[in-house]
């Protein structure tokens, strides 16, 4: 156990911040650059995971288990969100015949 705990002495917190921010920005990039709704949805999952990673890193560096409990709840919400979102995407595909984001502009101002 002691060897594993020494990770946080070897790798500084800044590295985890850098990694999480990079992953989050890649998720935002995927959200903006792609037109396939499923890829956009996967980018949201990537952003949630970047936040999870940062939260676990903060929790480990602070020695506080509450951050990890919140990560657990984020995973719960993500699972529910995916179930609903994919059902909505299936219905959109049934009704419109595609999952192109740019075709779904009825609510656009």
């Amino acid at each position: 156990m002691n060897e594993i705990t020494s990770t946080i002495q070897v790798v500084p917190l800044e590295y985890y911040i850098f990694l999480s921010v990079t992953l989050f920005s890649i998720g935002v990039l995927g959200m903006l650059i792609r037109r396939n709704a499923i890829i956009a949805f996967m980018s949201i999952e990537l952003m949630l995971n970047a936040v999870n990673l940062l939260m676990v890193a903060f929790s480990a560096f602070r020695g506080d288990a509450k951050g990890q409990v919140f990560v657990f709840f984020i995973m719960v919400v993500a699972a529910a969100e995916v179930a609903i979102g994919l059902a909505i995407l299936t219905m959109i595909h049934h009704n419109r015949g595609s999952v192109d984001i740019n075709a779904l502009n009825k609510l656009k101002w």
Binding site: I4, T5, T7, I8, V11, Y16, L19, E45, N49, N52, L53, V56, A57, S59, A60, Q68, V71, F72, M75, A78, A79, V82
Partner: peptide, 25 residues
Amino acid sequence: IAGHFVILNAHFLAIVQIIVYTGAI
């Protein structure tokens, strides 16, 4: 990311990450 959880000493979340994210989602 599950590997990162392991080296951050969050073993439970690493397992949940693999089961829930890669397994179910």
